Simulated assay, not measured.
Amino acid sequence: MFAGGTARLVLSNGGEAPLELTVEPWADLYRIPPKQSCVVVTHSPAADGSWSGTLRVDEPFQVDHRSDSVTVWANGDCFHLSDADGDVIDAADRHCPARNPAS
């Protein structure tokens, strides 16, 4: 059983063009199609579920948005992506302790 914390961030593209998504610090690049959403899931390795934070301590994400792109800094040990229905988008092995987006 995974003893750390899990955080989810829903990103929606309400525009007419694909939205570029970069997940840092891995520099992984994705596209969110128009009128669709995805969920970034990250896991904290700390037993108490705390996060290292980027600008502030104990925050699982930092988001930087521009007109045609968004960068998400995931402050866990790993990340994976799912769609709004929970279906995996990125099935790459990130050594995540919990691969199920709903967990």
Rank of each mutant, 00 (worst) to 15 (best):
Val23Cys: 00
Pro97Ala: 12
Pro33Lys: 08
Gln62Arg: 09
Leu9Gln: 09
Phe79Cys: 05
Leu21Ser: 00
Val70Gly: 01
Val72Asp: 04
Pro25Cys: 03
Ala84Phe: 00
Cys96His: 06
Gln62Ala: 11
Asp64Phe: 05
Ser103His: 10
Leu21Ala: 06
Ser69Ala: 14
Glu24Asp: 15
Asp85Cys: 08
Arg94Met: 11
Asn13Val: 07
Leu55Trp: 06
Val41Lys: 01
Ala91Glu: 14
Ala46Ile: 13
Leu19Phe: 09
Cys78Phe: 01
Ile89Ala: 09
Val57Asn: 11
Asp64Ile: 11
Ser50Pro: 08
Pro34Phe: 02
Lys35Ile: 02
Cys38Gln: 01
Asn13Thr: 10
Val40Met: 04
Ala7Leu: 08
Ile89Ser: 04
Asp28Asn: 13
Ser12Lys: 08
Glu24Gly: 11
Asp83Gln: 01
Asn75Tyr: 02
Asn13Glu: 07
Leu11Phe: 03
Pro97His: 09
His65Ile: 15
Val70His: 00
Ile89Glu: 03
Thr54Ala: 08
Trp51Val: 03
Ala74Met: 10
Asp68Thr: 14
Thr6Trp: 01
His65Leu: 15
Glu16Thr: 15
Val70Glu: 05
Trp26Lys: 05
Thr6Ile: 12
Leu11Val: 14
Asp68Phe: 03
Ser82Gln: 00
Val40Gln: 00
Tyr30Ile: 06
Leu55Thr: 11
Ser12Ile: 05
Met1Ala: 15
Ala47Pro: 03
Asn13Phe: 04
Ile89Pro: 03
Pro34Ile: 10
Leu29Ile: 13
Gly53Asn: 09
Ala102Met: 11
Ser44Tyr: 00
Ala91Cys: 07
Asp87Cys: 04
Glu16Arg: 08
Asp68Ser: 15
Val41Ser: 03
Asp90Tyr: 01
Asp48Glu: 14
Leu9Glu: 03
Glu24Pro: 07
Cys78Asp: 13
Val63Phe: 02
Tyr30Lys: 05
Cys38His: 02
Asn100Trp: 01
Gly4Trp: 09
Leu81Val: 09
Ser69Lys: 05
Arg31Ala: 14
Leu55Met: 10
Ser67Cys: 08
Asp83Asn: 12
Ala98Thr: 13
Phe2Asp: 15
Leu9Ala: 05
His95Tyr: 10
Val10Lys: 08
Ile32Thr: 06
Asp77Val: 13
Asn13Cys: 08
Pro33Arg: 10
Asp58Cys: 08
Asp85Met: 09
Gly86Gln: 06
Leu11Asn: 05
His65Ala: 15
Val57Ile: 12
Ser44Val: 09
Ser82Ile: 05
Ala74His: 01
Asp93Gly: 12
